[in-house]
Design a binder for these strands. Structure first.
Lengths: 195, 195, 195, 195
DNA sequence: GTTTAATCGAGACGGTACGTCAGGTCTTCTC
DNA sequence: GAGAAGACCTGACGTACCGTCTCGATTAAAC
């Protein structure tokens, strides 16, 4: 289908790619997003700076790829109730935001994304897309069960869930309570239910 | 109690203070948080860099003061219902986050605050404190009216409200709908009501 | 004579050679010696960088070959007088140093040659050798005519002639006067004549 | 006369200036002109790169000042004969070109000067000016003594003398013979004498 | 006719230097 | 002592070349 490029010249070394990603993730945990420089990543990965700039336009894109490796092909949760489904979904967000590299990277990363018009679009496009797909399925089932109305605003609910977790854990640095996900899920589920 | 400083030598010029604040707010709107440097602020304010560093430890503190001037001594809303009160409260947050200087500053500013342990504490301490005070009163009245339970977690609800608005408007840059505050308030109020 | 190489594998394409030389000479005139990079030569010649490095060790050697193509098999001048012979010889040097590509290349080229011990020897060995051969014949005839002594220091005279022309034209960029060669020749001839 | 600037702000530290000059001269001798980078000079001088760029536009100007410190206010030679005067003058050139730092710097330095139109003018303007002043006096005296004609081309003679020494010593790297200056002076003096 | 090997264009690779800019401190003179 | 000015050291930026390497594809001579 998509005609792969003729692949002229020396192909890029996948070991460089991997070393860069690993070095980035390590530095993120050790010194944080702001103190991580492309040069330091290159040095730790044993790689030239060009080798990084050849693959990523800048630090935000590199860190994004390094930190969010989780291929979110988890199936949408199906617990039988909206609150249950939201709990599973939220627990996923909590786990994602709490991972050391992600926690260290998120505030600075999102700030850089927000500052660039082109990257800003990718927050919803790339970052939230997997969650949105799962949330859509959850909502469809809830509509069929008669729990919520058909026109429930998915984007706004997702922004609220993600925003709550990000603010609570990412920014303020609160250690997440065991039932945080369940608590938030209950509130939101009850809030959007038809009755 | 606080021993007034000995006040030897030339006193600080309040006009410098004002010029710095104004220059900072202007630059925030014109070039954004990341592209605003202390040197540029000094140049525009017609001030030496030291005059800035003498008053603020760094860019985050300066910008925080420059952008959030609104002395939040508004009285807590009292519309008669929890949903009504939350709507007023949320509308305040939306307006605050939507102001040009604040919108331009917030993501980078919060990222810098989150990166520094000392500043991180000020997010809840200084940034959210006024809203929390008002929310506490709102909650007290709602408890008296029997709308919510007494042990409703104020901090978590506030994080959720602020997070939702910040993510929706600050990060993603969504133009806030006219009824955004009312919609969010309705969901959250319904979500935390006892019945 | 020279043991022909075993010549296994694909032979070198003479068209690449020619294209490289041409591209080098063009770039020399257009952007100068310092701003000419091997990569730029390769790109303009439609050739890989290795194809250049396979033939020349570096920029100095490449430029030297590209710029000094003049196969100096001119016969030694024989005008009947030392001054006349030197005039012809000097005019040759002037013409050589004044050619656009040579004028653009010479200062940087000689600097690179001077900086490398191995290349430094080639200044006298390759660069000045043809002129020296002709000057030797001119001197022999002048000795026979009794114009100069037998022990006249050829190398020093040649350095002086070349140095004068290089400094005057190559470095300072003086537009050569019509009689420059004759004038210099007259001074030097008179200076080394026995009486 | 020249109104000294009002001198606002912190004055430039003369110790930085001196340290930079010294570091440059040392590196010139140790690694040569081409291998000397501004960054290396800064590191050795214990100085930031900006401190160098604040004072000099680039490497050529810096090296020029670092290497040619000799305040050429020597009085013009006056030995009684043109050949004698030229010998003294040439010996000065030989000594200048033979100094370790100068010998290492000259070819690359002159190449960089020749490559930039603005700097090119300074070769005659700054570099040769002191020698030219002295040569003019020498010529005046020689004219009064009737040794040479009044219209002897000073610039051309100076280019020849400087070119000969530069080519012989600077480029080819010949160890200068004890009588080199006297020999060249004799040839040139004889060459331009009226009889 | 098949191996074998060097060459080709292309471009990735680890380095090094570039010249600029910001951070935060210091040092001068002036008020 | 505060203030404006600007020098100072540090360190990161993103780009450009360096000379080497690794691809797949040619192109001949050797087998």
């Amino acid at each position: 289908m998509s005609s792969s490029p003729p692949s002229r010249g020396r192909p890029r070394d996948p070991r460089s790619h991997e070393a860069i990603i690993r070095a980035t993730a390590e530095l993120m945990v050790e010194v944080g997003y702001a103190a991580t420089s492309i040069g330091a990543v290159a040095a730790r990965a044993g790689v030239g700076k060009d080798t990084i700039y050849r693959r990523w336009p800048g630090k935000p894109e590199l860190v994004f790829e390094a930190v969010f490796t989780t291929t979110d092909d988890l199936p949408p949760p199906d617990t039988g109730t909206l609150a249950g489904d939201l709990t599973v979904l939220l627990q996923g967000l909590v786990d994602e935001f709490r991972a050391p590299a992600a926690a260290a990277a998120l505030p600075g990363l999102l700030a850089d994304f927000a500052a660039d018009p082109e990257l800003r679009a990718r927050i919803r496009g790339d970052f939230l897309a997997p969650s949105k797909a799962r949330l859509l399925v959850v909502f469809e089932r809830a509509v069929l069960r008669g729990e919520i109305a058909g026109e429930t605003p998915v984007d706004l609910v997702l922004d609220t869930l993600a925003g709550a977790v990000f603010f609570h854990i990412g920014l303020i640095g609160e250690h997440p309570d065991q039932e945080l996900a369940a608590l938030l899920a209950a509130v939101v589920a009850k809030g959007i239910e038809v009755r």
